[in-house]
Design a protein around this nucleic acid. Structure first.
Lengths: 192, 192
DNA sequence: ACCTGAACACCGTTCAAGT
DNA sequence: ACCTGAACACCGTTCAAGT
């Protein structure tokens, strides 16, 4: 009866991520993961409901590697920037995962709108980076917009606020920052 | 020898889009599209190099339906907003296509950074909309950021500029506008 | 030039059986 | 409880043949 599981979920995650890093998302299948673990395909159904569960496994593995900032900036915008940078760096380390993230991952978790916005940017930037280098000097003179979102995040989105215990990031990628600014300018459509 | 093609590309596009609208992207396969057209799978290879070509077909079909704005606003930000609205409305009409758009479509075309940014937002908003209604009152007091991107678009990105012959949009979706503003606030991280 | 069916090497998942 | 192989209904694509 009560048998101990042959594999831990972490083992599956590690093997799946390895597979995706090596062969792309298309290289991850029930059968390929199973044989990478030296077992049969059906064994995986003890850890995962279906094929899509494999994607979520990979996404979780990547998110688990994110070094979320842990200390607070005075300016909340610095905090959000640090979060975005951290998320982007984690995704960047596993380019093939992008596809899974974009197609279903984060939205399936019913994540917060604000976090979704940030991650949407992260995706967009990473995709742009694959196609060609960004015009890094675009946003140098960007100015402020009103930041009412700060309250909004604190009141309605505790999870985002919790994530926003921001670290004093030393080694941020300058190109990413410049790209972020360029995107913000491009998106800044507010009326006056 | 010289035989006339049995199907026009437009016929394929229409049938493929219909399939995706009805059964989701997963419902589109070489075989399913072929049998929807009453032919064999291999016939499709005369119009399309491989399976991914089917996705591009669908994406093109959606983009073809976009009623791009045709007249100019004085404020370039109004123009870009009109573009974003038009793109979003087209995508909205075919929710299942989102997956294809997000995973490869637009980035594969090496599109402009700015347009990618806008479409990334469109994706993010559409995904957020599927998960739940947006906090529409979030961005009411948004203010300006510097808009150097205007020049940038004119000098370096003629295709975007060409698309930015903006129409005087009458029926824009208010929720979308509000969501756009909320996202902009959330993303507005510029330093001061 | 364009179409086509058979065949190949895959795929996810159901099922029934094993410990 | 957890594992497993066989079987089923798919899939994209190569190939060789048809008009």
């Amino acid at each position: 009866m009560g048998r101990p599981p042959k594999f831990s979920t972490m083992q599956l995650q590690q093997a799946a991520l390895e597979l995706v890093d090596k062969h792309g998302l298309a290289g991850l299948s029930m059968r390929s993961l199973a044989s990478a673990l030296g077992t049969g395909a059906m064994t995986l159904y003890n850890h995962v409901p279906d094929r899509d569960g494999l994607d979520l496994l990979v996404i979780d593995a990547v998110l688990a590697q994110v070094r979320w900032p842990t200390t607070c900036h005075n300016d909340w915008r610095d905090q959000v920037e640090a979060i975005a940078v951290a998320g982007w760096q984690a995704v960047r380390a596993h380019p093939h995962v992008l596809q899974a993230l974009a197609s279903s991952g984060l939205s399936g978790h019913a994540l917060l709108i604000a976090f979704r916005a940030v991650s949407a940017f992260v995706m967009g930037f990473a995709q742009a980076e694959l196609a060609g280098p960004l015009a890094t000097e675009a946003g140098e003179h960007a100015q402020d917009v009103i930041a009412r979102m700060r309250m909004l995040a604190k009141d309605q989105y505790p999870r985002l606020t919790e994530m926003a215990k921001v670290a004093n990031l030393k080694k941020v990628d300058l190109e990413f920052r410049a790209g972020l600014r360029a995107l913000l300018i491009g998106l800044a459509l507010s009326k006056s």
